[in-house]
Write a protein that binds this DNA or RNA. Structure first.
Lengths: 252, 252
DNA sequence: GACCCTCAAAGTGCATGCAATTGAGGCGCA
DNA sequence: TGCGCCTCAATTGCATGCACTTTGAGGGTC
């Protein structure tokens, strides 16, 4: 075995998990934009593991919908269609309504404190980069899900929240997020008060407004394949011609 | 609804996918009961691939919650706790309400025919093994999800349905499923009629009744670790003692 | 100048090999 | 007999190697 550089391997390494978490975070902070290439060996080299492990991590992320795997091709950060984005938000709304329904009136003092602290952090980050704001906002929802103590719910909410985050980076215009922060505070308040119906409706309208602020037009383009971008402009029956446009247009 | 481009989520049509599908099916038909061991090399040998591939498949199934992966230990078919089963059903109810909401009044003739044909198949299988009935019932729900043309929704519904199926094999007593079949027919009828509210409530009560028929008592035991079974019987403060019981009791 | 053909470089698909960990049976001891 | 330690086969964790596929750059042709 290759001489391992003094790493404290006494702990269960879980290298795949490490890579997954790193990539997830990079993706939702838009350090890795949709369409970015993720070659196995670069990944392996970057994280000090073999291609085998990098590959395994990519497989997991693909199952979560954050990465697209095509046979014999380099993996890329997923580029969800507008419709998929809309679907993801629809699912998310239902799941998070479930979260707050389970949580209403059941939060402990320390949980409430934790939530408030998180929103405070969101507040402080308002002047920072959009990417960080988006990540914090997403993490607020995941924090909530965690408090349900339902591993399944946590997993689904996290996954779908990450996906939504990814779509935001594709379809969203630069937005101000103050309102979102206030909505988070309102949700906490309703949770504490224990008003189940109220908090479900708050969560619903919160996510709905995030979605509709973000997914304004079904006009996608950024980072997508030129062919896809041009498709809607093709006249009826012209698709054949489009495919054969000169190289420069077909370029990726 | 406008015809949506078919899912491009055909991830790997390769060997990993084949193994995953085979194992999923074996698990929901209870050919592989919860707790059953899944050694990488047996799997590889059985499917004519190397351990690498078998391992990858196990990773995917673990991400779906059908398999439990413990470091340096043989993978086993998952044994969800009673609470996890309940959580899975709760999530499933919300997701499937979403499915029928999207589908109400929008089914094509051929889709309706397909659904009816499936329920007929369920009917015919009523005399067969319980395992097949359960699988067919599950596949009815997945068939519905497929008709939404939302890859994300399909994936989540499938996953959670498989999980529920798995829990049925753990906690359910032998049950008669005629009522379930009739409920399926009622759902189709309401879908055709386009009564959104009605079909959502039908789906809700259908799944709720399946869940409550199945998850009767929070008393689990089959196939679980002895320690877990004995845990509730431990007196306060005795847990320490329990852990140190002689080997024969700790046996798995 | 645009097209097409060829081919090497880059990258994936998968099997295999070796080290590390586990747990089950065997041996000694009370 | 019963309990604990020790050892070894079984099994996983991971890296590496080889074959195959895709990519895209260069050069020849019209």
């Amino acid at each position: 075995m290759a001489p391992r550089p003094a790493s404290k391997t006494a702990i269960p390494s879980d290298k795949v998990g490490v890579i997954c978490r790193a990539l997830r975070r990079a993706i939702i902070e838009q350090a890795l934009a949709p369409g970015a290439k993720l070659p196995e060996d670069s990944l392996g080299e970057r994280f000090g593991v073999s291609r085998t492990i990098a590959r395994h991590a990519l497989g997991q992320l693909a199952a979560e919908g954050l990465v697209e795997l095509r046979r014999n091709r380099i993996a890329v950060v997923a580029t969800p269609s507008w419709q998929e984005a809309r679907d993801a938000f629809d699912i998310r709304i239902e799941l998070e309504r479930l979260v707050v329904r389970q949580l209403a009136g059941k939060l402990t003092k320390s949980q409430i404190a934790e939530l408030n602290a998180h929103v405070d952090a969101e507040d402080r980050a308002r002047d920072g980069s959009d990417a960080v704001s988006i990540r914090l906002a997403t993490e607020f929802h995941i924090l909530l899900a965690n408090m349900t103590n339902s591993p399944i719910l946590v997993r689904y909410v996290s996954e779908v929240a990450y996906r939504c985050c990814l779509t935001l980076s594709l379809y969203s215009r630069p937005h101000s997020s103050e309102c979102a922060i206030n909505e988070h505070r309102a949700i906490i308040a309703a949770l504490v008060k224990g008003d189940e119906a109220k908090v479900m409706s708050l969560m619903h309208s919160h996510l709905d407004s995030v979605a509709s602020r973000a997914l304004v037009a079904p006009a996608p383009p950024r980072g997508r394949d030129l062919l896809d971008i041009l498709a809607p402009y093709a006249e009826e029956g012209e698709s054949e011609r489009l495919v054969k446009l000169p190289k420069v247009v077909r370029a990726r």
